[in-house]
Every structure is written in C-alpha cells, then in structure tokens.
C-alpha cells in the first residue's frame, strides 16, 4: 500500500507542477503586452513599470516562473486589478459559500444516487427499476441551471417559499443560511445524483453477476444481505473511484448555480473576473481549481486504498 500511495502522491505532484506551468503560460499567451492586460484601466507608465517589477516581466521566462511559484508558495495569489484587493482574501470570503454548497450537494446526491442505483439494480426488470432509470436519465438530460430558473420562478417568486437569491452566512443565522442554500443545493445535487445513480447501478449489476454473489445466495442469505453485504461493498469501491472524476462537473455546476441564485461564492467571483478582464483573479481561480481537483483526487485514491483490502493488505500468497 505504501508504494501505491507514494506513487500516486508523486503523480499528483507532477500533475500539479504541470498545471502550474500551464496557468503561468496561459497569461503569457494573452495577445499583446501582459503588463497592459494586468494593469486594467490604469495604463500610466508608472503603473506599468510597477507591474513589470511585481511580476518580473522584464526578466527571462524561467525567472518569471520562479517568481510566480515563489509568490504562490507564500500565499500571494496576486491582487485584483479592479478592486485592488488581494486575491487570497477574496478567496477567503468566497470559498466557504461554495464549499458549503458543494458539500451539501455531494451528500444529498450520494444518498439519493446510491439509494436509487441500488434499487434499480436489485429490482431489475420491475417497475421500480424503470422509474429509477427514467428519473436518472431525465436528471442527466435536464440543464440544471434551467431547473434552477424554473424553481426560482415557481417556488421562490410565485409562492415566496424560498428566497430567490442571496446568501446568509451560517455563523450569522443558521436557519436563514439553510433557507437560502436549500434550493441551490437541490438543484446542484440533481445532476450529480443522476450520475452517481447510474454508476452505482452499473457497478452493482456487475457485482450482482459476480461469482461471490452466487456463493452468497448459495449460503442461504437474504437478498438484502446479498446486496448490502456482498454486492454493494464491492460496487461502492468502484463508485468512489469514479466519483472523484465528477468533481470537475461539480465545480462547473457550482459556478452556474451561484450565478442563478446570486450566491457570493467562488463562481460569482470567477465570472465577475472574466467580464472585467481581471487577469490576476482569473489566473488564481484556474490555479486554485486545478489544485483542488488534484488534491481531492489524491484523497479519493487514499480513501480507495483504505476501503479496498486488496490494496490495504497487500501480499498475494503463493
């Protein structure tokens, strides 16, 4: 197991380094003088000179890269050229909103998705399977930002049951916080639960046709034990490994959901930055996303190696 994890850690680190290079080169791929782009409105020679100095733009590309990495390692993600705020402090206010949204959505999607997936696999060929499959297909095919619009139209604006937009931090007012976040969580969770459902169903069907399930049945176990103790345990290992790959979808989904519900999170910050051509912020956003993705997938691998005994307890006997 140690070699497996060391190997994965090394691969993740390598990917992270490559991602950093890509982000660094991305800004250099801007047409024209990067200093102009980084300066925004204020294009006075003094400002441009200051920016060149700050980013080391006069120096060779490798030196600039060293500069770039050094800044990041010191927690300096640059400064917004629109507001003059350090990007790291913008992140500190925006990320908790997105994290809450994402974590709640994952929890909801996992409960719904795994439950429905197991039902669909276990009730194969019966009405329950068709219902679960049909809902998953629709969940996969409906644009969830549109679902959000419709929900706002009919659940928030028309009835006033939920606030149509805005956010209240949990620390300020937990009840209002949940009230504001519930609809976005459900909307973001639907698409994700459809994906998890289909993966769970397919992995559980595979597991159910495995020889060890036949053995379990031949022992006289109840269907619930056959599925819960034998099939699901194996299929969830598969689901966990694939779920990490859904993170990209989740990040993209969170951006849109925040936009629709006016949540002041990472997504809103990103979009504002794009429309204001706030390059330092965009650069930081891309880098933080890539880092988060790589880190979480490493954690998924770690988790996977903990739950799968074939990796945890190595050593094939002769």
């Amino acid at each position: 197991m140690r070699t497996y994890l060391l190997n994965r850690a090394w691969q993740s680190l390598l990917t992270l380094i490559l991602a950093t290079v890509v982000v660094f080169l991305g800004v250099r791929a801007l047409p024209g003088d990067p200093a102009l782009a980084l300066a925004g409105e204020d294009r006075s020679p003094e400002t441009l000179a200051a920016i060149r100095l700050q980013y080391g733009l006069d120096q060779s590309i490798p030196v600039q890269f060293g500069h770039f990495v050094n800044n990041i390692l010191h927690g300096d993600l640059g400064t917004s050229i629109r507001t003059g705020t350090p990007v790291s402090s913008m992140m500190r206010t925006a990320l908790p909103v997105t994290l809450q949204l994402a974590v709640f959505a994952i929890v909801l999607a996992t409960i719904v998705g795994v439950g429905a997936g197991v039902v669909a696999a276990a009730k194969r060929g019966r009405p329950a399977e068709w219902v679960a499959n049909g809902l998953a297909l629709i969940g996969l095919s409906v644009p969830h930002f549109w679902l959000g619009l419709v929900a706002i139209l009919y659940l928030a604006v028309a009835t006033g049951l939920f606030p149509a937009s805005g956010f209240v931090p949990f620390t300020e007012n937990p009840v209002e916080n949940l009230h504001h976040i519930l609809l976005p969580v459900v909307i973001l969770g639907t698409g994700l639960s459809a994906v998890i459902m289909r993966q769970t169903r397919s992995a559980t069907l595979d597991a159910l046709s495995a020889d060890y399930v036949r053995t379990a049945k031949a022992k006289g176990l109840r269907p619930s034990a056959v599925i819960g103790r034998h099939a699901l345990r194996n299929s969830l290992i598969v689901v966990v490994t694939i779920a990490g790959l859904q993170l990209g979808e989740l990040i993209s989904g969170a951006v849109v959901t925040e936009q629709i519900f006016g949540l002041p999170g990472f997504g809103k910050m990103t979009l504002d930055a794009v429309f204001q051509r706030d390059y330092p912020v965009i650069q930081a956003v891309v880098l933080v996303t890539a880092t988060a993705y790589i880190a979480i997938n490493f954690l998924v691998d770690l988790l996977y190696s903990l739950i799968d005994p074939r990796i945890r307890v190595g050593g094939e006997a002769a």
Partner: peptide, 19 residues
C-alpha cells in the same frame, strides 16, 4: 441453501468475496 444443500464452485478466487 447452505444448511441442507451446500455448494463448492469452480473458481475459488472469484467465488469468494474479495473485500
């Protein structure tokens, strides 16, 4: 099953639950 009629299958690896 398992009490009166019990089974042994061909592939002991795949017939046992790996986890």
């Amino acid at each position: 099953r398992g009490r009166d009629i019990a089974y042994i299958f061909q592939e002991p690896m795949s017939s046992l639950n790996p986890v």
